[in-house]
Each structure stands twice: as structure tokens, then as C-alpha cells.
């Protein structure tokens, strides 16, 4: 958990900064139920996380008003973002984001940008792992890359969730590293992708840990590498021989690709410092709940927390990076 400490320290500093402002600006709290927008369908990763947060808030009585989770998944989440964008000055609305915060406006041309929303906090980062069937002939990401290269274009099939989103962006990055095209097959959800790999209808996936862990443990799939700068922190054994921590990073196995997906919270444009401070404090309490920590561990999330200027800076960098990645891949709308 080394990196986390740094972040927590930074976040605390940021929050203290906010705290002093809000002490003068008068504290705020919701006066009616808060709508928690999920720009994705029911049952997916973002939805599960939103409902977990809702449950933690209700169970531990962290807020006087209730939370109502609202799914607005249309147009790869554009509907949800537009809803928040067009409700300026309504602080009773927050939204959980995934990478579609960056990819949807670029890929579909729907006019919005993260700057249209007010950033609250980064809750966690979701990891991506390169998975192959356990009886696949390659043992490392390097061997996989070599096989892709010698196989030639479109020989290998990569499954993923959605189109022109995080999974396909990683796929394009892998293609660049391998120097050969993969056939990217988009599916509806992460669980489906993992099962298609178990059934060998595809050759590899970049599933999030939680989507594939069950098949790893049952011996059907094996992880080759994780698309993060450092290894995953969880050292508890998941199979007889391996823990999350034993999976090498892609970079150390010769596949220099890094990608993490934002799980962050935003609120409506024009929210005051006091309103943002309330939600930051609320989320801080959520993160302390044992249920949250269990969820982070089960899903092998990167539990990074970020607020204020750090978060804005992070968003600016990531937005630019997504723009570059998507331009190179030819995913920009028009």
C-alpha cells in the first residue's frame, strides 16, 4: 500500500485546504435526496460500485438524506453526463465516472467534456490484466507478444467490453507494441468477455481483475501481466501458487503499456466549495467503511484517493492522453 500513503497525505492536505475555505463559506449539506447518476447500465462495474456506496451510506448513516441511484447509459453514457452538465447549480446530483468520461465525447462526438462538470474526488483506479486460457502456449506477456507478431495481422482475437472504450484502447496499444493487428471483438459486459475466453471463442482479454478472478482461481484462465506501473498490492494467495502481487507488470514483461480506469465522482457545474467539501468528506467516510475496503481488495483495485487541484491536474493529463490515444487509433468521431 506504499503509493496510497502519499496520495492520502496529499488528499488530506487538499481537504484541509478546502476545509479552511468552507469554514468561512458556511457548511452545506443536502436538503433533499441526492441523485447518484451512473452513466452505464445496471449490473456493470460502475453500477455495482455506485450501489455499494449507496448501501454503505445508508447502513452507516453517513448522510441525513437518502441516495437514489439513477442509470443513464444511453450513447455510451453520454446521456448521464449531459444530464449532469445541463443541471447547473443543482448540488443534489452526483455522477460516478469510468473511462467513458474521456472516450465517449471523443468517440461519439456528443458535446461534453469533464470540464463541464465539477470534479469531487477520485475514489479508486480500476486495473486491467492481460488474460489468456490457462493452457495457452505462452507463459509471459513477452511470449504472447512474440506469438502475435509471428502470427501476423488479425490472427489473434482480443475480446473486450464496448467499442472505442478502454478495452479497445489497450488493445490498440498492445497492437502497437506487437507490430501486428489483433481482431478486437466487442461484447456487452466484462463477465461475458471472460466466459467467452474460457470457452475459447477468443484468444485473450484485458478484463478487470474482478471480472476474471473466478476463472483464474478455477484454473481456466491465467494472467500474463497487469497494465499498471507497479504490481498490485494484494498479497493474499488467490490460487495455489499465485497472488495478485505475483502478476508481473506489463512493462517488466516487455509490453510497455500502462492503463488505469478512473472511478471518480463529479457533481454539477457551478457547485460551491462547500458543496464539494461535503461530498469529499462523505466519500472519505465511505472509504473508511470495512465494506468498501473489502470491495477494493476483492476487486484488486488501486485504492488511490485524490481531490482538489491534484485531481484536476490528473484529469487534465488523462484527457490529453486519451485524446492522443484515440487519435492515433483513428477512433475520433468525424
Amino acid at each position: 500500500m506504499r503509493p496510497t500513503w502519499h496520495c492520502l497525505a496529499a488528499a488530506t492536505a487538499a481537504a484541509i485546504g478546502f476545509g479552511t475555505v468552507s469554514a468561512f463559506a458556511q457548511a452545506w449539506e443536502p436538503t433533499r435526496p441526492v441523485q447518484f447518476i451512473v452513466p452505464a447500465g445496471t449490473g456493470g462495474g460502475a453500477d455495482t460500485m455506485a450501489r455499494a456506496i449507496q448501501g454503505i451510506i445508508a447502513k452507516n448513516n453517513l448522510m441525513k438524506q437518502s441516495v437514489q441511484v439513477v442509470n443513464k447509459s444511453g450513447g455510451a453514457g453520454a446521456e448521464g453526463f449531459l444530464d449532469v452538465k445541463t443541471s447547473p447549480g443543482d448540488p443534489h446530483k452526483i455522477i460516478i465516472t469510468l473511462s467513458n468520461l474521456f472516450t465517449t465525447p471523443l468517440g461519439t462526438g456528443v458535446p461534453f467534456n469533464w470540464k463541464d462538470l465539477t470534479p469531487v474526488a477520485m475514489l479508486a483506479l480500476d486495473e486491467f490484466v492481460l488474460w489468456v486460457p490457462s493452457d495457452a502456449p505462452f507463459k509471459t506477456a513477452g511470449e504472447y507478444l512474440a506469438a502475435v507478431k509471428t502470427g501476423g495481422n488479425n490472427k489473434f482475437k482480443m475480446g473486450g467490453t464496448g467499442s472505442k472504450q478502454e478495452d479497445q484502447i489497450i488493445t490498440v496499444a498492445v497492437e502497437k507494441a506487437a507490430g501486428a493487428k489483433l481482431t478486437y471483438v466487442p461484447f456487452g459486459g466484462g463477465g461475458e468477455v471472460a466466459t467467452q475466453l474460457v470457452g475459447k471463442h477468443i484468444d485473450s482479454t484485458v478484463n478487470n481483475p474482478i471480472e476474471a478472478v473466478a476463472h483464474w482461481r478455477s484454473g481456466a484462465l491465467k494472467p500474463l501481466c497487469v497494465f499498471d506501473g507497479a504490481r498490485l498490492p494484494v498479497t493474499e494467495k488467490m490460487t495455489a501458487t499465485m497472488s495478485w502481487n505475483d502478476i508481473p507488470t506489463c512493462k517488466e514483461s516487455g509490453l510497455d503499456v500502462q492503463y488505469l480506469m478512473l472511478r471518480g465522482i463529479f457533481t454539477t457545474p457551478g457547485a460551491t466549495a462547500a458543496q464539494v467539501a461535503f461530498y469529499v468528506e462523505l466519500l472519505r467516510k465511505v472509504r473508511e467503511a470495512p465494506e468498501w475496503q473489502q470491495l477494493m481488495k476483492d476487486g484488486a483495485f488501486n485504492p488511490k484517493f485524490m481531490t482538489g487541484a491534484d485531481f484536476t491536474a490528473w484529469l487534465t493529463t488523462e484527457d490529453a492522453r486519451h485524446r492522443d490515444l484515440m487519435r492515433e487509433a483513428g477512433f475520433l468521431a468525424n
Binding site: 456528443v110 464496448g162 467499442s163 466487442p186
Partner: peptide, 8 residues
């Protein structure tokens, strides 16, 4: 949204 190409 066309799920295959990510196009509207």
C-alpha cells in the same frame, strides 16, 4: 449507439 463500432 452501435455497440460494435461505438458509433451513434
Amino acid at each position: 449507439l452501435d455497440g460494435m463500432t461505438g458509433q451513434l
